[in-house]
């Protein structure tokens, strides 16, 4: 964020003080700090992961966005880039990783597969988009999105972060913590625990 943007609270600063003080709203500085240090989870799924690596490499260099610190552990990361086809065999692990990430956390669905199943949607082992299980913040279309398209998506994440406020952020609200997403199980097919009653009744209808 440019300094003039940061240094603009919603009320007027007397002209003689403008050079001496920097007044900002708490939200602005909080979101500025957060949006410039989004640490992604080091986690590649498929073809898009290679473009993600390229985005981290010297030509595109996501370090310029403060995002180069890819953490292999979900406990230390803020952003999950779903970079590739989500399969039924993999989704329990993805949900578990998502649950392990601390708030605030964001999810970017990179490419067609992660967004909506992609070209492999019809396959028997493919989940039709990761948003069937975990909430997605930004969708980046493309197969695969070029690194620049991914950077564009990451800027959308930053945009989203900048639009949030401490007052309303869900991770500072009173009450119970956000419920964990139940981890799907593998049976004769993928079993979503949220749909157990539907599965029990489904066939009889």
């Amino acid at each position: 964020m440019e300094s003039n943007e940061l240094n603009s609270p919603d009320y007027e600063i007397p002209p003689e003080l403008q050079a001496q003080v920097a007044i900002t709203s708490l939200d602005k500085i909080y979101n500025w700090g957060r949006s410039a240090s989004v640490w992604p989870l080091m986690f590649g799924l498929a073809c898009c992961a290679i473009e993600m690596i390229c985005a981290a490499a010297s030509r595109f260099d996501i370090a310029r966005f403060g995002m180069e610190i890819m953490r292999p552990s979900p406990r230390q990361s803020d952003l999950m880039i779903i970079s590739g086809t989500v399969t039924k065999k993999m989704i329990p692990i993805i949900v578990r990783l998502y649950n392990q990430m601390p708030e605030p956390k964001y999810v970017l669905a990179m490419g067609a597969c992660a967004s909506g199943g992609g070209p492999f949607k019809e396959g028997y082992n493919v989940v039709s988009g990761v948003d069937k299980f975990i909430p997605v913040d930004v969708y980046v279309p493309g197969c695969p999105p070029t690194p620049q398209a991914l950077l564009n998506g990451l800027m959308k994440i930053q945009e989203k972060i900048k639009g949030e406020s401490i007052k309303t952020a869900r991770w500072y609200q009173k009450g119970p913590d956000m419920a964990e997403i139940p981890v799907p199980m593998l049976g004769p097919d993928l079993i979503d625990p949220r749909k157990i009653t539907l599965i029990q009744n489904g066939k009889k209808n």
Binding site: K88, E122, M185, I191, D192, G202
Partner: peptide, 27 residues
Amino acid sequence: MAESKNLFGDNISYPDGFNPESQTFDP
């Protein structure tokens, strides 16, 4: 959308009479 045609809203189907709660095997 293909998922809107599916009963479970995703790419899944089960054998007849399948009850997930009675599943005992470990993959």
